[in-house]
């Protein structure tokens, strides 16, 4: 005699689930964590959100280098708050990645083992205090251009994390610009220091938007799914158009002889970007890649006793 058949619910119909997902995207509604989603959508988002989170965490280092050398208590308090924000941004993003089934500690391990990437910009050194100002103005300015459209990303938790990040990012950019304005009102040596920092950070800032559209393998699908809203080149152009007038007010020269207003379009033309350098830095051969990863590894390993102590404390008090 055979066992009675169990009354199992019918296996979910993949085509129906896909149709429901497509309809949600088409209606510009948000996908939420427990919804069915195509595996490529999930894994692509984990890759993008993890990379974004890693960038925030590694991004604490270039400016953190100046915490003990800030020129006044005021500047030090501002810089501390800013670096703490970067840590917070990383946490919001890891939290979003976890809603997709990723494990936070595992993502950190992948960063340290160089299996996942972070933004190329953080592999450049901060040589003077003017670099702190220029990072706020240009690097965080570029980040704002990238992140504002992500507040409408199709994946709910990512979009919500971006809204929090963008609210705080404006402080980052303004403190940087104010720092530079203060230096530009100072001595010739200070003005030269600002110009030197602008000369070094301008091109890497343009590279932050990623490869040109015809060489950006993941972009098209990301746009179709509403994860990304604008192409790399479009965002880069927006950033240039926003930044040129700010440079004029500041009184610095952006290091590009081809930079000029196109009267026909009202937009600024700019010179070719050195994509060989970008690819080198992404491949791990930038000026500071090894240092950044080594310090992240040390933070994980050398501070492990803190998490162990907290775990032990929690264990004692739960009894």
């Amino acid at each position: 005699m055979s066992a009675p058949t169990l009354d199992r619910p019918a296996a979910p119909d993949e085509a129906a689930l896909q149709a429901q997902f497509d309809a949600t995207i088409a209606a510009d509604h948000r996908i939420e964590p427990r919804d069915w989603m195509p595996e490529a959508y999930r894994s692509g988002l984990v890759r993008q959100i993890a990379q974004h989170a890693h960038s925030e965490i590694i991004g604490m280092q270039p400016e953190g280098d100046w915490l003990l050398a800030a020129p006044s208590l005021r500047r030090k308090a501002i810089l501390l708050a800013k670096v703490q924000d970067e840590a917070g941004h990383g946490m919001y993003l890891y939290s979003a990645a976890e809603t997709l089934g990723a494990d936070r500690a595992d993502l950190t391990d992948k960063l340290i083992e160089r299996k996942q990437k972070y933004s190329s910009i953080f592999n450049y050194p901060t040589l003077t205090y003017a670099d702190v100002g220029v990072i706020g103005w240009l690097v965080d300015g570029a980040a704002i251009c990238n992140q504002v459209p992500l507040c409408r990303s199709s994946y709910g938790p990512y979009a919500r994390a971006m809204i929090r990040v963008c609210k705080e990012e404006s402080f980052h950019q303004r403190q940087g610009y104010e720092l530079l304005m203060t230096m530009m009102r100072g001595t010739d040596a200070q003005r030269a220091m600002v110009q030197d920092a602008v000369d070094r950070w301008w091109a890497p800032s343009l590279m932050m938007f990623g490869p040109p559209d015809d060489d950006s393998p993941n972009s098209a699908q990301s746009m179709k799914w509403g994860v990304k809203r604008h192409s790399n080149d479009e965002l880069r152009q927006r950033f240039v158009d926003m930044t040129v007038p700010q440079a004029e007010v500041l009184g610095v020269t952006l290091p590009d002889p081809e930079l000029a207003l196109d009267p026909a379009t009202g937009r600024y033309r700019f010179g070719a970007i050195d994509w060989t350098e970008f690819k080198q830095v992404i491949a791990g051969k930038g000026p500071c890649n090894d240092e950044r990863i080594a310090r992240r590894r040390a933070a994980r390993d050398d501070n492990a006793w803190v998490t162990e102590a907290a775990t032990a404390y929690a264990g004692k008090h739960s009894r």
């Binding site: 939290s95 979003a96 705080e168 998490t307 739960s318």
Partner: peptide
Amino acid sequence: HVGSLHAPDDEMAVHAARDLYTRR
């Protein structure tokens, strides 16, 4: 709801939430 975090116990979760979600 504002997000999530990991903590070893309830009390430390509240402290971490303060630092992470109410800096302003």
